[in-house]
Simulated assay, not measured.
Amino acid sequence: MASKNILKDWFKTGLYPTQSQFWEWMESYWHKDDIIPQAKIQNLKTDLDNKAEKAALGAHATDANAHADLFAKAATPYRFLPVFPTTDTSELQIEELKNATLNAVMYLGQIDMNVIQLDPVTGTLSNWDFRANTQYIILYTKR
């Protein structure tokens, strides 16, 4: 198979590539209808070997203690609380949130600071559709 530089030389302005040169050029590239063999994709096996398995990632996502050591090292006035509702609900009553100020709720890679409401007397979060088996990280400060 010809290198890119050789292929370029065949197609310089004013030159007339031969049929075999043209075919060589066409065979040098993957056509959009070609199926590319996995063995030809650079680092595919290594990348697949290093990926997280779906079950392990799912278990990690629902682990209330995931990254607790990292959260403990964070210097912040905020407290954090991992919450896992067991059923879909529009309200969550959480004892630790009594006499607290809600700062943020993190979930599924998003942060909400304006929609979810906290009743600091009862510790109830509301105004949201909390999903079962979804981890929410509640950032709050005590009054």
Results as ranks from 00 to 15, higher is better:
Met1Gly: 14
Met1Ala: 12
Ala2Asn: 13
Ala2Leu: 03
Ser3Tyr: 08
Lys4Glu: 08
Asn5Lys: 11
Leu7Glu: 04
Trp10Arg: 14
Phe11Asn: 04
Lys12Cys: 10
Lys12Arg: 15
Thr13Arg: 14
Gly14Ile: 05
Pro17Ile: 03
Pro17Gln: 02
Thr18Met: 01
Thr18Lys: 09
Thr18Val: 00
Thr18Gln: 04
Gln19Pro: 10
Ser20Gln: 14
Phe22Leu: 15
Phe22Arg: 14
Phe22Gly: 09
Glu24Gly: 11
Ser28Pro: 06
His31Val: 02
Asp33Asn: 13
Asp34Arg: 11
Ile36Ala: 04
Pro37Ala: 08
Pro37Arg: 13
Ala39Arg: 04
Ile41Glu: 05
Asn43Glu: 09
Lys45Met: 11
Asp47Gln: 14
Asp47Gly: 08
Asp49Glu: 02
Asp49His: 02
Lys51Pro: 07
Ala52Arg: 14
Ala52Gln: 08
Ala56Phe: 08
Ala56Pro: 06
Leu57Arg: 09
Leu57His: 01
Ala59Leu: 12
Ala59Lys: 14
Thr62Ser: 13
Ala64Tyr: 08
Ala64Val: 15
Ala66Tyr: 04
His67Lys: 10
Asp69Arg: 05
Asp69Ser: 03
Phe71Glu: 01
Ala72Ser: 03
Lys73Glu: 02
Ala74Arg: 11
Ala75Glu: 09
Ala75Arg: 13
Ala75Pro: 08
Thr76Ala: 13
Pro77Val: 00
Phe80Asn: 02
Leu81His: 00
Pro82Thr: 12
Pro85Tyr: 10
Asp88Glu: 02
Thr89Trp: 01
Glu91Met: 03
Glu91Asp: 00
Ile94Pro: 04
Ile94Asp: 05
Glu95Ala: 06
Glu95Asn: 00
Glu96Pro: 00
Lys98Asn: 08
Ala100Leu: 01
Thr101Ser: 15
Thr101Tyr: 07
Thr101Asp: 09
Leu102Phe: 08
Asn103Lys: 13
Asn103Ala: 00
Val105Phe: 05
Tyr107Pro: 04
Gly109Ser: 13
Gln110Thr: 12
Ile111Asp: 02
Ile111Cys: 00
Met113Val: 15
Asn114Met: 11
Ile116Ser: 01
Ile116Thr: 05
Ile116Met: 04
Leu118Pro: 06
Asp119Gln: 04
Val121Asp: 04
Val121Trp: 03
Thr122Val: 02
Thr122Met: 06
Thr122Pro: 11
Gly123Asp: 04
Thr124Leu: 01
Thr124Glu: 05
Ser126Pro: 10
Asn127Phe: 05
Trp128Arg: 07
Arg131Pro: 05
Ala132Lys: 15
Ala132Gly: 07
Asn133Ser: 15
Thr134Gly: 01
Tyr136Arg: 12
Tyr140Gln: 03
Lys142His: 03
